[in-house]
Amino acid sequence: MKSKCLAASLCVAALALSGCASKYVEPEQYSGFLKDYSVLKQGKSASGTEVLYWLDDGLDAKRYTRVYIEPSRLYPQPPPSEKISQDTLRDITRYYDQALQRELAKVLPLAAQPGPGTLVVRPAITAVEASDKDLRPYEYLPLMFVAAQVSSATGIRDQQTRLASEAAFLDGGSRRTVAEVVRKGTGKDLENDAQTMHAQDVKAVLDGWAVDMTRSLQMLRQR
């Protein structure tokens, strides 16, 4: 009987691990910001990070001489909370704008408005959260699982900060969508559920996304 119970516990652990292992945004987590999610496919960004993306077969990135970056937005707009304040939400989009402008300007001059010969970047932050860290493999063993659940219930368990993003890239002349990307990232850990989240906790994620976007554009222009 004990062996059967252990086997059942290990099966539950394996299922739980597989559920936590996905590095892609799941379809049920799509925000509705993009027009068509059916064209997305799994791949890796310029840095090797897992993303969902789509590129128009006829995309010729060399034809663009400028880049126009629309202000990033929170979509859908989340309500502020004690954990994530309105100031934090504002600071996240503000910093993402700065990171995108800083990095993309290394490839193309920034345009003041969209137009012919301009690549339009339309970014959105589609999820901002701070929640209990995923259980590590050893924590799925029965006794450790109970201990982990207790720490979560009492609010002493470390929490992870997470973001998700969707972005569309448009031809500035025709306004036709030429590329899309969906991805997520994990920021700094919070010590417990009483610690509030700040933009500083996810700046490395936003910087990484901006750098990745820039490298991808460079690679497309070199094709």
Rank of each mutant, 00 (worst) to 15 (best):
Q101R: 15
L104G: 12
L104E: 00
A105L: 10
K106W: 09
V107H: 10
P109A: 01
L110C: 09
L110K: 13
A111K: 07
A111E: 01
A111S: 06
A112M: 01
G115S: 10
T118E: 04
T118L: 09
V120G: 08
V120D: 12
R122T: 14
R122E: 13
I125C: 14
I125S: 04
I125P: 15
I125Y: 14
A127I: 01
V128Q: 08
V128E: 01
E129P: 02
A130M: 05
S131E: 00
S131C: 00
D132R: 02
D132A: 13
L135Q: 07
P137H: 09
P137Q: 06
E139N: 07
E139W: 05
E139V: 04
L141E: 02
P142S: 09
M144P: 11
M144L: 15
F145C: 11
V146W: 03
A148G: 10
A148N: 05
Q149V: 11
V150I: 14
V150N: 08
V150Y: 07
A153L: 14
T154E: 01
R157F: 03
Q160P: 01
Q160N: 10
Q160V: 03
T161R: 08
T161F: 07
R162I: 06
R162S: 04
L163G: 02
A164W: 00
A164D: 04
A164G: 02
S165N: 13
E166I: 00
E166R: 02
A167K: 09
A167D: 00
A167Q: 03
A168L: 11
A168D: 05
F169A: 06
L170W: 05
D171F: 14
D171E: 13
